[in-house]
Amino acid sequence: MQSRTRNIYLIPYVLWIVLFVIAPIVLVVYYSFFDIEGHFTLLNYKKFFTPVYLRMTLSSFWYAFLITVFCLLLAYPTALLLTKTKHKQLWLLLIILPTWVNLLLKAYAFLGIFGAFGPANALLETLGIGQKQLLFTDFSFVFTSVYIFIPFMILPIFNSLEELSPSFVDAARDLGASPWTTFRRVIFPLTLDGVKSGCQAVFIPALSLFMLARLIAGNRVITLGTAIEEHFLVTQDWGMGSTIAVFLIIAMAIIMILTGSRR
């Protein structure tokens, strides 16, 4: 009927997609085949499979996994309890508000909190444990990351809990299920989609957090993100950086497929 109008809108939009979605991915893959002097090579891929890079990849995944698990463990009860409060939209807004504060400022706050004379150490002192080196450790890195990501986990879980019809829960209770069985057999399975999208929203960024790793963990934690940043901006070895980026893209695609909700 109006095939001509369609084309008019499509032109700028498709142009955007080609220029900023397809071209960058193609370029990253293309650059991964070149060494620092600009010669075609497969060496980058060979280098990626050496223990140094494999260990880094593994540790990056391990940290992202830890961050996701802690987020989930803390966020699920929070979301569940939030749905039972009176002014839930207001509480939800209060959960979202900290995400509007710049991530770097939050990281900077933890520089002070975990500092040698900061409140975290003061707390340890009063508990009788004594002063410890907290900053530039894996602990502070994971803690700060969980702090930053937790709203992104709470939100989708809260939404799926809200969508859950209370009559399911009532029915389970009427049929004699204990609260725990109700949770395990009814509530949790029905909110699995929210959990999945929460995990996705945490795990993928957690793989690539280079600024947190730099600020909070010093150079103790090296993630895929830190490696990419270093190759692109410090050593200028774009080829190797692109190779790591290619693997990060592949990992991302796998995670998306695994956690993709069936709709």
């Binding site: 900023f20 960058p24 991915i25 990253v28 993928i204 690539s208 692109s242 990060l248 991302m252």
Partner: peptide, 21 residues
């Protein structure tokens, strides 16, 4: 799907690929 690629991509990937671009 193509539209959502940039939403789910980690920032480092977007940054690095735009730098090349």
């Amino acid at each position: 799907t193509l539209n959502n690629v940039l939403i789910v991509s980690p920032d480092v990937i977007i940054g690095a690929s735009f730098l090349i671009l």
